[in-house]
Amino acid sequence: MVKRALIERRPWLLLSLFFGVSWWFVAGGAMPGLYQIAWKGAAVGALAVYAFQRHLGRDGALIAGVMTLYALADMAQELWLAAGGVLHAVGHVLAIWLFARNRRANPTRSQRLVGIALLVGVPLDAFLLAFGGEGRWLVAGYALILGAMAAMAWQSRFSRYRIGAGAVLFVLSDLLLIAANGPLRSVALAGALVWPLYYIGVLMICTGVVVRLRRERG
């Protein structure tokens, strides 16, 4: 019954789960490259459609836009890592706008401290992980935008245990990606964990925002 209800009421969410979970097994396989790129983009692309079709006003359009940019970034990343980074950064800026519009009125001291830690710690960690490699200042610049997104998500009025935690998983995924191209290049598990951490994080952010907005609209 639960599966049937999910298919009937949230087909795009189910489609996203299918592509998101299966991509972990499809990546690097025998499937032709263009199909792999489309398969990867479909995971978060379906989340964009899921958010858009909820008709949740400006905030709903913003989260759909964020997911669209992330999906485009996922596909571009397969062709050129830097292009994926630029598109992800633009998506983060749009997400910052969304969370700024929904900032918590009176964040606690611990929430402010976590926000500061993310804003400062993420670019610093990225710089250290990329140390000695080419373009580490660009990596740190991207990580600053990523850290700002996570900090704003943590201090937004949305659930910290869904949106905040999802943003932190996104951060961990990108830091692992940087490490997998640097000091952890020989550690296969580091690269293998990038996608599941990223996808689960994005899924938590999207569904968390949509559920909250839908609840508020009755």
Rank of each mutant, 00 (worst) to 15 (best):
Q111R: 14
Q111N: 05
Q111S: 08
R112C: 03
L113S: 13
L113Q: 14
L113E: 07
V114E: 01
G115W: 12
I116L: 15
L118R: 12
L119W: 14
V120S: 00
V122L: 03
P123Q: 12
L124H: 03
L124W: 12
D125R: 06
A126W: 05
F127L: 14
L128Y: 02
L128D: 04
L128E: 05
F131R: 14
G132F: 08
G132E: 05
G132V: 04
G133H: 07
E134T: 12
G135W: 13
W137P: 02
W137L: 15
W137C: 01
L138M: 13
L138I: 10
V139T: 15
V139N: 03
A140D: 08
A140V: 07
A140F: 13
G141Y: 05
G141M: 04
Y142R: 05
Y142G: 03
A143Q: 07
L146V: 14
G147R: 14
M152C: 15
A153P: 00
A153I: 02
A153K: 01
W154M: 09
Q155V: 11
Q155H: 04
S156Y: 02
S156L: 06
F158E: 11
F158N: 04
S159T: 03
Y161N: 08
R162I: 10
R162H: 12
I163W: 07
I163N: 05
G164K: 15
G164R: 14
A165I: 07
A165T: 13
A165Q: 09
A167E: 03
A167K: 14
A167T: 05
V168G: 10
L169M: 15
L169C: 13
F170I: 04
F170L: 14
F170G: 02
V171H: 11
S173K: 11
L176Q: 06
L176Y: 06
L176T: 09
L176K: 06
L177I: 15
I178E: 00
I178V: 15
A179Q: 10
A180Q: 11
N181M: 11
P183L: 01
P183W: 00
L184Q: 11
L184N: 07
S186F: 02
S186L: 09
S186M: 02
A188W: 02
L189C: 01
G191I: 10
L193D: 01
V194D: 02
P196H: 04
P196Q: 04
P196K: 09
L197I: 01
L197M: 15
Y198Q: 13
Y198R: 08
Y198G: 02
